[in-house]
Design a protein around this nucleic acid. Structure first.
Lengths: 347, 347
DNA sequence: TTGTAAGCGTTATCAA
DNA sequence: TTGATAACGCTTACAA
């Protein structure tokens, strides 16, 4: 790289024959300096290629200008799910408004705490992370604010969630109301040991929602008529689940996935193997990612406001940063989105 | 917020009855301190909740631990295109390997230069940005490395690109070989004034590729049989283009989009309006995003290695950071992916 | 309007 | 093995 020494404020002050203060004012506080000296300083700064160091500035001002987005898996794994991208877009719209950048912080060398320790950010939004004590404690120690998306609710930490239980109930009720009684539930498996705790709130609530609906139809998860398969939350995960499902002697009539991207994995498998949805098997998802409405048949699913969740989380974080009062708990409602992937089942 | 004062190394050193140096060693350089004092220091650190400040550490070490991903539009706009997410995944896999986080840097308050100036990163990967002098110069002044993805080739700046010209040639040749002679090209429009320069390399090359193919069939962009419509690079952009296309008295027989996400916007419009692809109109894209194979009919398009581009760019940046010799120019080949969205046109 | 000097919280050098 | 002390590069009272 360019090995010549970087120009610092000291050097520039010297070259311009002024003090560091003057240089600093020229850049950040024009009103406190005369127009002529300011212009001269800027001209010389330009000439020498001086640009204030953001890290040094951050240390002095205690403001970074970046929101930390803490994710439970590596970036390539986590971003396999378009749902994440939608949440990120929501946070991103806050960034745009506030003039912030967005630092995606994955587990560093497999360790979430390392990521937290070393990220230069003004605050964290965690996503799909069970905020066990260690994480919360460490962020608290860093003395920066924290907002939890899709994590466990806790008294002192603002959280933004979805009514996962209600959403799961609705979709399972719908599937059952269409006459399905042999069902495979595609649940969420953690992708690695790193995030063994992840998804557990979301997974548990959705499972509970499914169970509630099943119960109201006199059914339960018995491993025979209604069984659960754990999947990695990606298309590949859905494909693998399909590979387990279709060799089954007694096929289910419906597959209910906890995530659209998993359902779409199943969809892809079916298309490749000439299995027709919903004629041969019905399929339902969760999340309502944009892709859900793109496939044919369009996927019946549960909408949860991914973008809005990110947006709200970002707004709360900004409030916290400004020391403003803000929401401590937000829960978004779900809607069942009935499309074409669930057929009526005639026994 | 937690208003109690943050614990600093000074305070901790005092509490532990040692020097700052000892504390620093306890955290970063265990071998240079006795085991007993180290343990004592760590215990006291734990007790007081001390955690080293990453910003201060960065200032002293000159290492941030984050790759800057410079994008031409706001986060919510840029991430509307799944293609971007794929590039990000590629960079992300380098982050995972190196233990870095990834800072997405959009134009701050509409100004890319502001984003560059204030981002705390070790280096930048720019995406889809025409690196006009100002940008390059500023990054050079910050004295951190830069890798350009999908930007103009330049002698001193490593760049990672796709053979856009060749790809465009291939797909247009294919469309023409299927008998299409009335064609609408969906080109890339900049989303805002901010990025008026963006896409221009990609756009110009792809257009040139299309033109080459047209020329070999004795055709040219004449605004009548072959015309160009500029679109925002999103589904909405594709939809808007469709709204302009279908009222046309003489419909084209094929639509060739410079981006899959635009093509998918057209696809969505067609589905909503009962227009059948490829029976009523043929459709081709560019990028081969995952969604392209999900829709029905599956989209005929050009694959460009989005993930690999991000990966390569990240690797080059790391090389640069380590002062290693590295590639200065990488160009990925394209493949035409023939699926089902382009029909034979019988005149 | 401009300058002096004290932070900001680390790491790194060099001596003890 | 440990400790002073000087960077790191900037902002910001306070003084002039």
């Amino acid at each position: 790289m360019n090995s010549r020494r970087r120009i610092t404020i000291n050097l520039l002050a010297e070259k311009a024959g002024v003090s560091k203060t003057a240089v600093s004012f020229a850049f950040n506080n024009p009103s406190r300096i005369s127009k002529t000296t300011r212009e001269r300083i800027l001209r010389i700064a330009d000439e020498y290629g001086y640009v204030p160091d953001p890290v040094a500035r951050t240390l002095a001002t205690r403001k970074v200008g970046s929101i930390g987005f803490l994710i439970p898996q590596s970036i390539p794994v986590a971003f396999k799910n378009p749902f994440l991208s939608q949440v990120l877009q929501g946070i991103g719209s806050v960034c745009q408004k506030e003039g912030f950048s967005l630092t995606v912080v994955p587990p560093l060398k497999g360790c979430i705490l390392k990521g937290i320790r070393s990220a230069a950010v003004d605050g964290f939004v965690t996503f799909g992370l069970e905020t066990h004590l260690k994480i919360v404690e460490l962020i608290r120690q860093r003395n920066i604010p924290l907002v939890v998306v899709d994590g466990k609710r806790s008294r002192n930490i603002p959280s933004v969630n979805t009514d996962d239980l209600g959403g799961a109930e609705k979709i399972m009720e719908y599937v059952l109301s269409r006459g399905h009684r042999r069902i495979v539930i595609l649940s969420l498996k953690s992708a690695s040991k790193v995030d063994q705790e992840n998804f557990s709130r979301v997974r548990d609530l959705r499972l509970k929602g499914y169970e509630n609906a099943l119960e109201s139809f006199g059914l339960k998860i018995d491993g025979r008529n209604v069984k659960v398969i754990n999947c990695e939350c990606s298309m590949a995960g859905g494909r693998k689940a399909a590979e387990k499902i279709f060799p089954l002697k007694k096929l289910p009539t419906a597959v209910v996935a906890m995530s659209d991207i998993i359902a779409i994995g199943v969809f892809a498998y079916c298309r490749e193997h000439g299995i027709e949805i919903p004629k041969d098997i019905s399929l339902a998802g969760f999340d309502n990612i944009p892709e859900a409405s793109l496939i044919s048949p369009a996927l019946t699913t549960v909408s949860q406001s991914a973008f809005e969740k990110g947006l709200k989380a970002g707004e709360i974080l900004i409030d916290l940063l400004h020391g403003r009062k803000t929401d401590n708990f937000v829960e978004f409602n779900t809607d069942i989105i009935i499309r074409d992937s669930v057929a009526v089942n005639r026994p």
